[in-house]
Simulated assay, not measured.
Amino acid sequence: MKAWVLEGFGLKNLKKLDVPVPKPGARDVLVRVSAVSLNYRDKMVVEGTYNPDLPFPMTQVADTVGDVVEIGIGVSRFRVGDRVISNYATRWIDGPPAVDEVVHTLGNTIHGGLAEYLLLNEDALVHSPTYLTDEEASTLPVGALTAWHALVKNGGLTASQTILVQGTGGVSIFGLQLAAAAGARVIVTSSSDEKLERAKQLGAKDLINYVRTPEWHKEALKVTEQQGVDQILEVAAGRSLGQSIETIRPGGKIAVIGILDGFTSEIPIFPMLQRQVTIRGMVTGSRKMFEEMNEELEKSQIRPVIDTVYSFPDALEAYDHLYRGAFGKIVIRVRP
């Protein structure tokens, strides 16, 4: 089979190769891959900042959808023909995460889905929502589930809340869609007026261009009449985390889901104490959360926002697009 394999750090070392089709062992499921979607994490893996000890060669990409074509002895959760999606944290089934449950991920310690076939233990898969296309379903494991975990499971999302999402990448756009569908007020920040206008069409009420307004937290306080916001999807970290603390309503929650501005932050302690803010790191979610989210998606019929779909041979162009940034998700169609 064909697979995009990382043989060393750097995009020049991501190569399309011929590799053997894996054979299912006990409780394994062989999936014929239909589509994958990219995340900022995939860029970090290639660059060596996500896992400096990455074993080579390693087939890339975590977010995968496809059809079950073969099952191993003891598989009980799936049958041949089922359409399935990979869970990012492959060993996180339910409950709070253990130390290693977000370590065992595709394209990192386990061969990923940017290949014609993917082999996973049945515990690492969920059934796909029926109403989504393959391309749409491939966007759920990181983008949708992280937003769901942050806003719904941890944040108790309601129509009375005000939500601030940073940027217009995959998690942020899912967060916007989930919050808007719940009837919440949504504030979106971006460096692009064009992207902000598109966010408005998805239900955003307040738009802040942080290039023109570097002190964006002051604008967010202004539009909320100095009350602050209930929840923030913090994708930047760095200096931005301090601004988020200044923006949050007393008792509010900040979900730190990205590190676009760096691996460290200096934060204002006194405002954090005054606001009694909860700051929590988020790495997607458990399989049970994924299944619960998919049930709700079937009811709400939210359709993921896809920026561009690339063909399997054009995977490097998809990565180039990832490096430039996207509105929503970048997808690679694996099956012609």
Rank of each mutant, 00 (worst) to 15 (best):
V126C: 15
L202M: 03
E234Q: 09
A180N: 05
E122T: 13
P141M: 07
W92H: 13
I163C: 09
I245Y: 03
I259W: 11
N294R: 03
K15D: 15
G169L: 10
R280W: 12
D314R: 08
T308S: 13
E292F: 12
H217L: 09
R287T: 11
G251S: 01
K218Q: 14
S76Y: 11
T90N: 13
A3Y: 15
E295V: 14
T284G: 04
Y131I: 05
L118I: 07
Q177R: 04
T278Y: 00
L120R: 04
I73Y: 06
I163H: 12
M293Q: 02
V102D: 15
H217P: 04
L120F: 09
P96E: 01
K205N: 00
T278K: 15
Y319C: 07
K2G: 06
V331M: 02
E234K: 01
F290P: 01
R79P: 00
V331C: 06
T105Q: 15
L145P: 11
A144T: 06
D307Y: 12
L140I: 06
A115L: 00
L54H: 12
F174E: 11
A147I: 10
E47H: 02
V103E: 14
R335K: 15
N121I: 04
P96F: 06
L6S: 15
K200Q: 02
G66T: 03
V188W: 00
T224H: 00
L54W: 14
Q177C: 12
D100M: 06
A150C: 11
G81P: 04
A236C: 05
V223D: 00
P313N: 12
S240A: 11
P96I: 07
S128Q: 08
I330G: 07
V61P: 15
G238E: 01
I332A: 06
A237Q: 09
R91F: 05
E197F: 01
Q301S: 11
T133V: 14
G156Y: 04
Q301K: 13
G262E: 05
D320V: 05
E101Y: 03
D206M: 02
A3T: 07
G107C: 09
F327T: 08
Q243Y: 04
E296Y: 06
Y210K: 03
L30Y: 01
R249K: 13
S160L: 13
R27L: 09
T109G: 11
P129M: 09
Y88D: 10
E225L: 03
H217F: 12
I257R: 09
L132P: 14
E266A: 07
A115I: 11
L273S: 08
V36L: 03
Q243S: 08
R275Y: 00
G169P: 02
G95E: 11
I254H: 13
V33G: 01
M289L: 13
H111Q: 14
E122A: 10
G112T: 06
E246Q: 04
I254Q: 10
A255G: 08
T158S: 14
T158V: 01
Q60L: 14
V80R: 11
E291Q: 14
V165K: 10
G8V: 04
P57C: 11
K299H: 04
G252S: 07
N51M: 13
E298W: 02
Q226K: 04
S128K: 03
V165W: 03
S265D: 00
